[in-house]
């Protein structure tokens, strides 16, 4: 899945394994990739994201 290997703390990896299964991901790689994509997207546009979320909460579409 990944083009290159990434070192990750053993304990963290165990958590990743555990929660990727709970969350319904088909592999650890998919979970990590998804988490990284989401985190990068968040960092890229944290402020505007918050503004949209606030509006959607006001409309009752997210909690």
């Amino acid at each position: 899945m990944f083009g290159s290997k990434i070192k990750i703390d053993k304990n963290l990896l165990e958590k990743v394994r555990k929660y990727s299964e709970i969350a319904g991901y088909s592999s650890v790689e998919e979970f990590v990739e998804h988490a990284l994509e989401k985190e990068i997207a968040k960092l890229e546009d944290a402020d505007s994201e918050e503004e949209i979320k606030k509006r959607l909460k006001g409309l009752g579409y997210i909690s």
């Binding site: 319904g24 579409y61 997210i62």
Partner: peptide
């Protein structure tokens, strides 16, 4: 809603 689509797991 579109805001939550990225939360959907890859398992489906």
């Amino acid at each position: 809603i579109s805001e939550l689509l990225m939360e959907l797991p890859d398992a489906y």
